[in-house]
Design a protein around this nucleic acid. Structure first.
Length: 307
DNA sequence: ACCCAGGGATTTT
DNA sequence: AAAATCCATGGG
């Protein structure tokens, strides 16, 4: 018997496991739709880190199997992260009736959800995201965690994993240390944000309680944070349902679907978004983004099929 | 409006 | 093999 198997047989080394009911939850679309950067697909499972837990998730028809290390008696943090209490049908019913493009996106990405992420990890990750492709963002975040995160308790059946580095851990580093994680010109912005959180001048709890416009203004005041990144934090961390991060993919989708390919400017697109998508515009954005990125081939993106 | 700030991945030559 | 382009952008 291998040492690993011997250890897994030892009840004191058993992973914490549970099963959570979840209807129409598309784990793959959700964890691979660019809202988070720390999940890896492996043998039908998704492995990642949430807070101080290593997590392995697998969906079946009626729910989600979860294994964690270290074990925990309480699963509310996972239910919250995955937003299992959200009634997806209610969200989808709020979408504009007769929008065939959005309908097609929803059909193609059935069960895509929005997560509820830690504000610091979310802000830091999206500061690192500017003009980077998702593959590269993942790489930078990985390096950052390995070098400056806390190692999680070892388990023979679990790959080495680290927490996302705290604001204090980042603030204690030099700009050069951060640049060594391949983040380039984003390093000073990340460092500044970490210092602001570490010294208490930026507190997420009060921020999330502010009216959306005020919270957005406070975020945009940070170096390296514009409307797009501020909206990512509002939507992915604070759950502001009508926050609508507009990146190049979403802009491409909007122009193609609603402006017949016309080069509408940002203000025009913004006005359309606010009037069109309704109270869960953030969800609509996530469907359009994932649909554009995954389900439309390069040629079709130039000349979309008629609906 | 324009241009610049890493650098890896992807696409084109 | 080498070169050009792209990228969940913001700031000057």
């Amino acid at each position: 018997m291998s040492p690993s198997a011997a250890n897994s047989a030892d009840p004191s080394r058993a992973l914490g496991e549970t099963w959570l009911r979840a209807e129409q939850y598309n784990l793959s679309a959700t964890l691979d739709s660019g809202q988070c950067f720390r999940w890896r697909h492996n043998a039908g499972c998704w492995q990642g880190v949430i807070g101080h837990h290593w997590v392995r998730l697998r969906s079946d028809n009626e729910g989600i199997h979860a294994a964690v290390w270290p074990p925990t008696p309480d699963w509310s943090w996972l239910v919250h992260y995955l937003q299992l209490a959200v009634d997806l049908d209610r969200v989808l019913q709020s979408f504009p009736a007769g929008d065939l493009h959005l309908t097609a996106a929803v059909e193609a990405c059935r069960g895509l959800r929005l997560l509820r992420q830690d504000p610091w990890e979310c802000l830091a990750s999206f500061i690192l995201s500017s003009t980077k492709q998702i593959v590269q963002i993942r790489q930078i975040v990985d390096l950052l965690c390995q070098r400056f995160g806390e190692p999680l308790p070892h388990h023979p059946d679990v790959p080495s994993a680290w927490t996302f580095p705290s604001p204090q851990a980042i603030a204690a580093r030099s700009e050069a240390d951060l640049r060594a994680c391949k983040m380039g010109f984003r390093a000073p912005a990340l460092l500044a944000a970490a210092r602001r959180v570490a010294d208490g001048s930026l507190a997420f709890e009060p921020l999330s309680a502010l009216p959306t416009a005020d919270a957005r203004a406070r975020l945009v005041a940070l170096p390296g944070v514009g409307e797009k990144i501020a909206n990512c934090v509002l939507l992915f961390a604070f759950g502001v349902q009508d926050a609508f991060p507009m990146d190049v993919w979403v802009m491409k989708a909007l122009r193609q679907f609603y402006f017949t390919g016309r080069r509408a400017n940002h203000r025009e697109l913004d006005a359309f978004v606010r009037s069109h998508f309704g109270p869960h515009a953030g969800y609509a954005q996530q469907y359009l983004f994932h649909y554009m990125r995954v389900h439309m081939q390069p040629q079709t993106r130039q000349n979309p099929p008629a609906l």
